[in-house]
Nucleic acid binder design. Structure first.
Length: 491
RNA sequence: GGUUCCUUAGCCGAGUGGUUAGGCGGCGGUCUGCAAAACCGUAUACGGCGGUUCGAAUCCGCCAGGAACCUCCA
């Protein structure tokens, strides 16, 4: 039996019970990155949000096909109409082939996502690999009468579409407002209205990326790729479409209109949007020049960063906030996440060695119910994490002998924590010792620990402190616990 | 300018009509040769002013401050 889950649908602006098109199966499409720059924190937020959805849906029993695209063609630069292909522009600056740029940043994206421990999507289609499909969509829209050709380019006729269909519902806009907002900007453009958007764009001679089409040598408009690829892999109508909130307009609004124009029915049943990462209260974004790349977070190599933050710290930081809230970046918040995650991970590794008793004072099923209820309420990961920390308190209490747990409950607790910590939240151990990188080093440090223990037994505090302090200077944490000494190498 | 949204303790962040969110930090304690770590306990709150209500951080109005989208964006 699959657990019921509620999802906030941007289209209706309320939480709705999720009912898949086909029982037990979910089609999920998420807008992936435009690969013309290194991946930053914002990319991670979107990717982690929908990774969480992907993982949770699988956990509660769904079979999910998760499609996340790579946009590697067709974006226009700021001057909207007559702009260059964004990727081509970057290519000239770097003196690289466009596809080389695409490859480079795609690799960087994959690498960062792997470090963040994201489950790979089921299919990761590239826009450049679906030019034919996109041309087919353009033909369908032309045939339906909602697009027109102009000087080798094809534009979607927004006003005509809006006169016969809903346009602006997703982003909460009224067509009249849009018209009055854009009409003044309308100059000598080949578009009939400033609202219209290109679904096929004729390439200027300096464009490096272009393909033949019935209308011109050119490239597809930005929005059409998602229509073509979601349709190809998930069908004309599918369950969930996700992406960053900043894509709601115009990208998703256009996509909605196009799909309806091309196929005669709505494509998406539930629209989900993650909110932005902010820096000093302002959106972090490449165009604002305040984006910190993931590589910089992992290395600590950025003026705003006090230290390096591991991928799991970033992941935990994100999941501590609800995906529909803005999340403000700060060193203090990140360091709090780092410590909180450490506490959680330590508790998980303790569960199996907890002493069992006849009876149990731990309300395991209650904790489990709370965690699942939170996640099923529009992916409320912060509440679920709070539930887990209730469990952490109890785990420590049993370890201290202040509470008792039965063997059955310990198993249940173990299953619960593994399901949430590893399978749903996707955390993994990052400690070097746990990943077993350097056996020889371990043995050497263990030897020093032994010498220190001997010195302590002889009350030779000078020697024992010297060993501790000098190892600390190298970067080792020496911890004297009740059950002996442990150590770890920081960084 | 238009549309939408936000304002919760030192920091980050849940909640959304009556019940402890949680994490980090602070403070107190346990442990320790000392310290650190670990663990336990604990205090501090709902931007301002009105209204609705038996009762509001939660609903409504006004004000202040901030943000997002309207152009490429996760």
């Amino acid at each position: 039996m699959i657990q019921e889950i509620q999802i906030y649908n941007t289209l209706t602006r309320k939480k709705e019970v999720f009912e898949p098109l086909a029982a037990g199966k979910v089609g999920l499409y998420v807008c992936g990155p435009t690969v013309y720059g290194p991946p930053h924190l914002g990319h991670a937020r979107s990717a982690i949000t929908f990774d969480l959805l992907f993982r949770y849906l699988k956990q509660i029993g769904y079979q999910v096909r998760y499609v996340r695209n790579i946009t590697d063609v067709g974006h226009l630069v700021a001057d909207a109409d007559e702009g260059e292909d964004k990727i081509a522009k970057q290519a000239k600056l770097d003196e690289l082939e466009p596809m080389e740029v695409v490859q480079k940043y795609t690799n960087m994206y994959h690498q960062a996502m792997a470090l963040l421990n994201l489950d790979s999507p089921s299919i990761e289609p590239r826009a450049s690999g679906h030019i034919i499909e996109q041309i087919e969509e353009v033909k369908k829209i032309l045939a339906s009468g909602y697009a027109y050709e102009s000087n080798g380019s094809v534009y979607f006729d927004v006003e005509k579409f809006a006169s016969e269909n809903e346009y602006g519902k997703l982003s909460g806009r009224k067509i009249e407002d849009l018209i009055s907002n854009t009409r003044t900007l309308d100059g000598q453009s080949e578009k009939r209205s400033g609202l219209d958007f290109a679904i096929w764009k004729k390439a200027q001679p300096e464009h490096l990326m272009h393909w033949p089409s019935p209308w011109s040598e050119g490239f597809p408009g930005w929005h059409i790729e998602c229509t073509a690829m979601s349709c190809k892999y998930l069908g004309e109508t599918f369950d969930i479409h996700g992406g960053g909130m900043d894509l709601t307009f115009p990208h998703h609004e256009a996509e909605m209109a196009q799909s309806l124009a091309a196929h005669g029915k709505p494509a998406v049943r539930y629209w989900m949007h993650n909110n932005m990462i902010t820096l000093n209260g302002q959106k972090m974004g490449k165009s604002l020049g305040n984006a910190i790349s993931l590589e910089e977070f992992f290395s600590g190599n950025h003026p705003l960063l006090e230290k390096a933050y591991s991928p799991m710290t970033i992941r935990f930081f994100m999941l501590q906030a609800h995906y529909r809230s803005t999340l403000d970046f700060s060193n203090e918040a990140l360091q709090a996440s780092e410590k909180g995650l450490e506490r959680l991970m330590k508790a998980v590794s303790k569960i199996n060695s907890l002493p069992v008793s006849e009876s149990s004072t731990i309300p395991v099923s209650e904790i489990a119910a709370n965690c699942f209820a939170a996640m099923s309420d529009d992916l409320n990961s912060p509440i679920a994490i709070a539930g887990l920390f209730e469990g952490v308190k109890l785990i420590n209490s049993v370890a201290d002998g202040k509470s008792t747990i039965s063997a059955d409950d310990r198993d249940a607790l173990n299953r619960l924590f593994h399901a949430f910590v590893f399978d749903i939240f996707g955390f993994k151990a990052e400690n070097q010792l746990e990943s077993g990188t350097s056996e020889v080093l371990s043995e050497v440090v263990d030897l020093l620990m032994k010498l220190r223990a001997e010195a302590k037994a002889n009350k030779d505090w000078a020697t024992s402190d010297k060993i501790r302090n000098e190892l600390a200077a190298i970067g080792f944490d020496i911890k004297d616990g009740k059950e002996g000494v442990s150590w770890e190498l920081k960084k």
